Computed example of a mutant assay.
Amino acid sequence: MIQKEIFDTNVGEYEAWYDNYPEVYQSELAAIREQLLKLPENIRGIEVGLGTGRFAQPLGIKEGIEPSEEMAKLAIKRGIEIMEGYAENLPYSDLQFDFVLFVTICHLDNVKLALKHAHRVLKHKGSIIIGFLDKNQAIAKGYEDKRHRSTFFKQATFYSVKRVKELLSNAGFKSLEFNQTLFGDIDDIDEVQITKPNYGEGSFVVVKAIKK
């Protein structure tokens, strides 16, 4: 609930980040898009915790969850259908979607419960895609060092790749595939980076996994 209030009252600062770091943003989009392109065509998916729609809109995702009313207002203007709710209690029935995207697991109150609900709403052999800042890489370490001065990362929990693997396996997912981007310090990234496979170098990691 605390994190919801942070996002409700700082929409302008949130939006400004994307304008101030366009190459970082486009690099993250490219890494997520690469995983989405592995999925079949003409499928239905959602983004959970989609903010103002900065990822959903360019990725062609038409619906999802955003608990912050102020963020949701901008997402709706970007053409996205918003369901009121939280990642930890998705307001959808079972077996609804072909994929579920998360780009904000560091802001979730209970990531285990969120993944359990993602598994529930996915169709058989549906995919979960998670974009996250690797706790062991430079950008997440920088945010952790400065979290007392950060608007959005004071309450954030960063995860290592090893921990994300464990969480996905425990939630009932298999066949994990990884790619990565954001190589170097965030303030030094001045061009859109080419995504690399696997993990261990880039600060932003994307994993795709299949529902068992």
Score class of each variant (00 low, 15 high):
S68M: 01
A72M: 07
A72N: 08
P40N: 12
E41L: 12
F55Y: 15
E69R: 14
R44A: 10
A72F: 11
G64L: 08
P40F: 13
S68Y: 01
R54I: 08
K62N: 09
K73Q: 15
I65P: 05
L59P: 13
M71L: 08
V48K: 08
P67A: 04
E70A: 14
K73Y: 14
Q57R: 13
K62S: 11
G51Y: 02
K62M: 09
E41N: 15
F55W: 08
G53A: 06
E66W: 04
E69Y: 15
A56W: 11
E63W: 09
G49H: 07
I43C: 10
M71G: 04
Q57H: 13
I65W: 08
I61R: 09
V48W: 11
E66L: 07
I43D: 05
K62P: 01
P40R: 14
R54E: 05
T52D: 00
G45W: 06
E47S: 02
G53M: 08
P67T: 01
G64D: 09
A75Y: 12
E69A: 15
R44E: 13
G53H: 08
P67W: 00
G49L: 06
A75G: 15
R44Y: 05
G45T: 00
E70N: 15
G49K: 03
K38T: 14
E63H: 09
P67V: 01
G49M: 03
F55A: 03
L50S: 03
K73S: 15
G45K: 00
P58C: 05
N42C: 06
L50A: 04
L59N: 12
V48L: 11
P67I: 02
I61D: 11
K38Q: 14
K38D: 08
P58M: 02
I46P: 01
E63V: 02
G49Y: 08
I65T: 09
I43V: 14
P67K: 02
I46W: 03
P58S: 01
G45H: 03
G45P: 04
Q57I: 00
E69L: 14
E70C: 10
G51A: 01
I43G: 08
A72I: 07
V48G: 10
E41R: 12
G53W: 00
L59Y: 07
P40A: 11
G60R: 09
G64F: 10
T52K: 06
A75V: 10
I65N: 05
P67Y: 10
E70W: 00
T52A: 07
G53Q: 07
L59W: 04
K62V: 04
K38V: 04
F55R: 00
A75L: 12
E41K: 15
E47K: 08
E63D: 02
L39E: 09
G60M: 11
P40L: 02
G45N: 02
V48I: 15
S68R: 00
L50Q: 01
E41Y: 09
A56V: 12
I61L: 05
G53P: 04
S68W: 03
E70Y: 10
E70L: 10
G53I: 07
M71V: 14
V48S: 09
A56M: 13
I46F: 02
L39Q: 14
E41Q: 12
L50T: 01
E47Y: 06
I65S: 00
E47D: 05
I43T: 12
E70V: 06
T52M: 05
G64W: 13
S68T: 00
